[in-house]
Nucleic acid binder design. Structure first.
Length: 422
RNA sequence: GGAGACGUCGCAUAGUCCGGUCGAGUGCACCACCCUGCUAAGGUGGAGAACCCUUUGAGGGUUCCAAGGGUUCAAAUCCCUUCGUCUCCGCCA
């Protein structure tokens, strides 16, 4: 949720932000009107309630024989209070839905426009050339007997897979490397719930435009999370944090579930786009004035991972229209995938400023006053990385070189060699 | 799944049976000051959150006793629902 004060003091800032996202500008005026309506309804209710409270004291203090008469007198007032209370409640909830429909204020410098309007901040590593015809990640993985899509589909349906043998180990190795990096940077490791209640899913904003991306279990009224961001944001909901010692940083290790609705026909081959995968996610609670610096640190940690794995990549500043509603700015790190001749997203890091925290009621004590914190999140490792890793380090014979940084996590293994499928 | 107990302003608790004097007492912790020749003890005072109004010196008001409903002139207190915690039984890949 945006800062309600902004609605009264600087509506133009909000209008500009909505415009650069391609969102409704009228929504701002609707919210301003709803705010005015809410305040006048609230004042009316509070005035009547104060009157009623005063009367209540008189009833309490009155002699027994006088009580009946006083009670009779106040009946009408009680009825008025009830009416005013209902009206105030309704005004409040329409104000809430109006203000919640406004996305986070986009930060200065974020390119306007849609998906294609991103700005490339830097490209690292160039685009590796091969003196043989490179195989795609699935062909390589099948040669290594590392991924089994057919049996994945047999058991779970399309977009499910088995990681086995070196495939399973590779995922654990990448995740473990990420975890060690995170630990080195002072992150607290967390294995969070992957099923959450509606309030938490709602609070993190995933039931907005991405609602049909989310698995829902009606029998239990629970949602399967598509990222540990959900649980990690919910972790401190309704709390006042102490940030005087610096930011609180968590590294969440979890399985993620996504319905991938509406992506029929896209990325159907291999494990680029799947319903279930593992992810190590950074999640930070910090003060609003520190948020942008922290955002840069998160990208730096992500780039460090890709560099250690010998991957070529670029960093993009995602355009306003392609941001989630909670994000004020988002950087994606995209790795070069040789057989696609394209950069594909491996990580994403969002600065949600105070938007998410306001919704989940997460605050810290500033100058005596409790104020919303800023939240940020970013990927440190996922199953998808296997794609870029295999393709980038493949050899003509179908074997794959293991980048040095990963070897300690694979018992010193330097080369992955093809084996017969079982 | 069955039975029971419980959920109070950081922590621990009082209050709930018998609704108004609880817009919530006490202890610990916390903050300021005082006293004290010393990392102690004592004293005084202060201290929660959200929102609204008037002002910008400060005031006034509303709401918050797990959450949401209900009864009532009036609810921490009575009723209902949900969530959570604990105990016992049952079940358990």
């Amino acid at each position: 949720m945006i800062d309600p004060q902004l609605l009264r003091d600087a509506p133009d800032v909000i209008r500009r932000s909505q415009e650069s996202r391609g969102d409704s500008v009228e929504a701002v005026d609707d919210a301003i009107a709803a705010d005015a309506a809410r305040r006048s309804a609230l004042s009316e209710f509070e005035r009547l309630r104060a009157e009623q409270n005063v009367f209540g004291k008189r009833v309490a203090a009155a002699a027994k024989e006088d009580k009946a008469a006083l009670v009779a007198q106040v009946q009408q007032l009680a009825a008025d209070v009830k009416v005013a209370q209902t009206a105030a409640g309704e005004a409040e909830s329409s104000y809430n839905s109006a203000i919640r429909s406004i996305a986070n204020i986009v930060l200065d410098g974020v390119p306007a426009g849609g998906e294609a309007n991103f700005e490339v901040l830097r490209e690292i590593g160039g685009t590796p050339a091969f003196d043989f015809e490179p195989k795609d990640h699935l062909e390589l993985a099948e040669g290594l007997d590392a991924i089994d899509m057919e049996r994945g589909a047999k058991v779970g349906g399309s977009r499910f897979y088995f990681l086995k043998g070196i495939g399973a180990r590779l995922e654990l190795a990448i995740m473990s490397l990420g975890l060690d990096r995170a630990l080195g940077a002072g992150f607290i490791p967390v294995i969070p719930p992957t099923l959450v209640r509606p309030e938490i899913m709602e609070g993190t904003g995933f039931l907005g435009e991405h609602a049909d991306e989310v698995y829902y279990l009606p029998a239990d009224d629970l949602y399967l999370t598509g990222t540990s961001e959900v649980a990690l944001a919910g972790l401190h909901s309704d709390e006042i944090l102490d940030l005087t010692e610096g930011p609180i940083r968590y590294a969440g290790w979890s399985t993620c579930y996504r319905r991938e609705a509406g992506s029929y026909g896209k990325d159907t081959r291999g494990i680029i786009r799947v319903h279930q995968f593992n992810k190590l996610e950074m999640f930070v609670y910090t003060t609003p004035d520190q948020a942008e610096e922290e955002h840069n640190r998160l990208v730096a940690w992500q780039e460090g991972m890709l560099q250690s794995l010998g991957l070529s990549y670029r960093v993009i500043d995602v355009a306003a229209g392609d941001l989630g509603s909670s994000a004020a700015r988002k950087f994606d790190v995209e790795a070069w995938v040789p057989t696609q001749g394209a950069y594909r997203e491996l990580t994403s890091t969002s600065n949600c400023t105070t938007y998410q925290a306001r919704r989940l009621s997460i605050r810290h004590r500033g100058d005596g006053k409790a104020e919303p914190v800023a939240t940020l999140n970013g990927t440190l490792a996922t199953t998808r990385w296997i794609v870029a890793l295999l393709e980038t380090h493949q050899q003509a014979d179908g074997s794959v070189l293991v980048p040095e940084a990963l070897r300690p996590y694979l018992g010193g293994l330097e080369l992955l060699v093809p084996i017969a499928k079982r």
